[in-house]
Amino acid sequence: MGMKAAIMTNHSGLKSFSTKLGFSVVQLDGLVKQHASESQDSDIVAVEILKLLGFQEGKVLDNSQFDLVFIHVGAGEKDNGSEQNADVEFVDALVGAIMRQAQPGSDVGSRLHLSVVMSYGKVLEDDESKFSVSKKVDEKDSCFLTLYPLQSYAMKGGVPRKDVRLHSPMLIAQLQHAVTRKDNVQRFTFQDFMKNGGNLTIPADRFLHEIAFKMWKAPKYGA
């Protein structure tokens, strides 16, 4: 797709994997010096991320180092030599700092795409009954069930996929001026997404393609 991409992480395994995929790797704890929930640290990280994307002091630079930057925060990572769990407060503060830089109508806000992705991590067997994205119970009892078409996430090249996990999905919230739709979700939870979310489901291996489409780098996937 011709995109220059980088990933910020402290995870050694992810660094190696990302390098093989062609990502440039940036050490996350090189930017995070203190406890990540402090607003001044999240502001600094947000500014550095935006610089990599070609934004500085609220303006758009002539050239950007990258088209796409991932920030990975995961459990069991090391920051400044000490073991830390994934810090939800850090993610919350960082997203807030980026959104303050990308106000509606601003140069940054009119060009930036922001996606926040949360994974369940370890998936348990009984999660299928609690976090299923397949048809609802009342739909299963319907006489019209056989007429219900397979959704695009369950198809590939016109053939039904056999490797789709129908429960415990990654949750994604996106913000892009004049592109993403606003829904009624209030909390980053599976139940709220299913009840009030504006989008449905997309395979994980098509997520980057969808981002590229929103950045005018690839054709549309699905309907």
Rank of each mutant, 00 (worst) to 15 (best):
S64R: 15
P219H: 10
A223M: 07
M215S: 01
E38K: 11
E139R: 12
L50C: 03
G58S: 04
S129I: 13
E77R: 05
D79F: 06
M118H: 00
A75R: 03
S37W: 02
G198D: 05
R181T: 01
S82A: 03
A5N: 06
S24H: 05
K33I: 04
K220W: 07
Y148N: 14
S134C: 08
I44D: 04
L68H: 11
F55C: 11
L53S: 12
D163C: 05
G76K: 11
E139C: 08
N199L: 02
D138R: 09
F144W: 13
K122D: 08
G81N: 10
Y153L: 13
E48G: 01
V164A: 09
L150V: 03
F190H: 08
V164N: 01
E125S: 15
S134D: 15
L52T: 09
A6C: 10
Y148M: 07
N199A: 00
I7V: 15
L124S: 14
G105Y: 12
L94T: 07
E77I: 01
E83W: 11
L52K: 15
D87W: 08
S39V: 14
V88R: 11
V185L: 06
L21C: 10
F144M: 13
L145E: 09
L208Y: 07
Q186V: 10
K135M: 14
D43G: 03
M8K: 06
A93N: 00
D41W: 13
M194N: 01
R100Y: 12
V185N: 05
M170N: 15
I7Y: 01
Q27K: 14
S24V: 06
L114Y: 04
S16W: 02
L68A: 02
